[in-house]
Amino acid sequence: MSRPVIGLTTYAEEARFGLNDTFAAVLPLAYVQAVHNSGGRAVLITPDAPDVDALDGLDGIVFTGGSDVDPALYGEPAHPTTQVKPERDAAELLLLRAALAADLPTLAICRGMQLMTVAYGGKLHQHLPEVLGHDNHRPVSGPKFGFHRVDLAPGSLARGLLGESVEVNSFHHQGVADPGKLTATGWCPEDNLIEVVEDPALRFAIGVQWHPEDTTDHRLFAALVGMTSSS
């Protein structure tokens, strides 16, 4: 039994490292470590559209965090604070739709969850502070993350993996307004913002609004890897 290969989508941006200031494919190492600590083998998938052949060797895929999803994809004009990477949107939507069509185990994180929502016909809030009246999901001062509880729906995949509720770390200014054809299965109790979406018709298709890779709680990654190795 060889180790499951888990794809991680990457940023493609101008990056500075060492003496380099260059266009790079780049991803926080925490995602890689979360996959490796969970028994998978991480490979990074760059946004090079149009292309789904990268899925060929993968046993599972993670859609990672990043910029805002282009509101044109859900038929709305851009809010002044919305910052988009249309090339990444196009490439990841293609990969996401192909992964879902193949029932490839899929974990979507933050931007990834929002992209998944849009892929299922949903819509986003483009700037949560204007909707919720607070910035707890991406504090403008203090520590990087906002921390809060998420309550999980009985019978959901998330509930089975994480229990009744979980403390999470948030860093996002957009959020799910309408989950489309996905099932919302987790909410922030303070403001009822949707924090988890799932497609119960698939083996493992779940999106979370927080950043499990940046915590010591890697149960979602372990479940993704476990799902692939049992298939």
Binding site: A15, R16, V26, L27, P28, A30, L44, S67
Partner: peptide
């Protein structure tokens, strides 16, 4: 590495 909102973040790149 530093990119976008990230400053001196340990990264695979």
């Amino acid at each position: 590495a530093s990119w976008g909102v990230w400053i001196d973040q340990d990264a695979a790149l």
